[in-house]
Design a binder for these strands. Structure first.
Lengths: 150, 150
DNA sequence: GCAAATCGGACCATTTTTGTCTGATTTGCG
DNA sequence: CGCAAATCAGACAAAAATGGTCCGATTTGC
């Protein structure tokens, strides 16, 4: 359930890139410093974002990274999955005749459904929409409506 | 995201209890053996279920455990939370002026919403409904324990 | 060719998870 | 009454995941 630190850093990085002027490359060391992320750790997870096609990287002297696609097309779900990989609900041992989850697949189905809903929500948020809601950090942003349902 | 083995065992145990004849106590060692759970591990997590009010335990000679409430009133969510404790989306360091998640609470809100949906789905499944859908295990059921279907 | 950057591992420390074991406590039953 | 069967509560160890560091290879602009 809980996302890892790596994912948190990944989201932070993507958000940073989304806020950077278009067409400008940012170097990961700089991002790390400004976002309070261990630089060597970030340099290890950036390639995951590149492989997932979310980030374009330019090597060499004045290189850096930037969003590979418009911020409107990059969802929170894509970022999470890029770093955490396939999010598996639970192991399906399959060793027993009853197939998944031993006592029957009813549970498996329930967990799958729950996870599906989880990812659905993440897919509703794009980098662009997140940046838009983020701005009012100032004191004027009170109230915020709704809040944690739970 | 991924539930722990302990939770899997917990669900398996609750399902077992739900299928047991009403009013009959089951001993955890027996459950462990029949469900393929390490007995000493199970004995450690059963108290969590008891503390959560999902299971009633009877100590002593011919003691054992049984559901504390009707299977219709016990949701998957309750079981998961009983074992995993408070499911936190992500740490809210709060060290920075922007409070949660550093770059703003937009992300925090998204994750919270996603988690909320996840738990909502789990809350839709009760032990009773799971047992009902579990039935069609087909003919692989033979040879197990005679006595017919209860 | 040098410096600045990404890239890709190997590597270690810490925490979490999984599992074992031992002992105390309760309680039915002969 | 005492024994056996059960839950309960922890200490403790092994294994896995996570968080983090470091070093070298590669690319590329100047």
């Amino acid at each position: 359930m809980k996302l890892t630190k790596a994912t948190e850093y990944g989201i932070l990085t993507m958000l940073f890139l989304a806020k950077a002027p278009a067409g400008q490359l940012s170097d990961s060391a700089g991002i790390a410093e400004r976002e309070g992320i261990p630089a060597s750790f970030l340099s290890k997870l950036v390639p995951s974002l590149v492989r997932a096609g979310l980030v374009r990287s330019q090597r060499g002297s004045s290189g850096g990274i930037e969003l590979a696609r418009p911020a409107e097309t990059i969802t929170l779900r894509a970022i999470v999955e890029a770093i955490e990989g396939e999010i598996a609900v639970n192991d399906c041992t399959g060793s027993q005749p009853y197939a998944c989850f031993r006592s029957g697949c009813a549970i498996q189905g329930a967990l799958q459904m729950a996870q599906s809903r989880y990812l659905q929500v993440l897919a509703d948020y794009t980098l662009a929409s997140l940046v838009a809601t983020e701005r009012p950090v100032a004191l004027s942003m009170i109230g915020e409506t709704s809040g944690g349902a739970e």
